[in-house]
Amino acid sequence: MISPIIFIILSIVIIIAAFLSLYFRDLLACVVSFSVLSLVLTVIYFHLDAPDVAIAEAGIGAALTTCIFVIAVKLTRRREE
């Protein structure tokens, strides 16, 4: 039985990562905190007994979405005007 404490901790980390990724002015920092959000989301999906979704979130959410965000930031401005 997974005690709910794990979910509480992971939820708090997710909320912090979400607000940080919207708060930073430097876009690369936003992208990094967004990939932290995806990573912790993968762990939560794993604990919610959803391995398929965890692999999909890790493969697509953390790896590829972060990659195209970094490419997009490289093509445009790094700091938010």
């Binding site: 979400a18 919207l22 876009l27 959410g61």
Partner: peptide, 16 residues
């Protein structure tokens, strides 16, 4: 938010 990329990040958070 006003930055185009930050709005896309916000959309991803909504989907998550």
């Amino acid at each position: 938010k006003r930055n185009l990329i930050k709005i896309v990040i916000a959309l991803n958070i909504l989907e998550a």
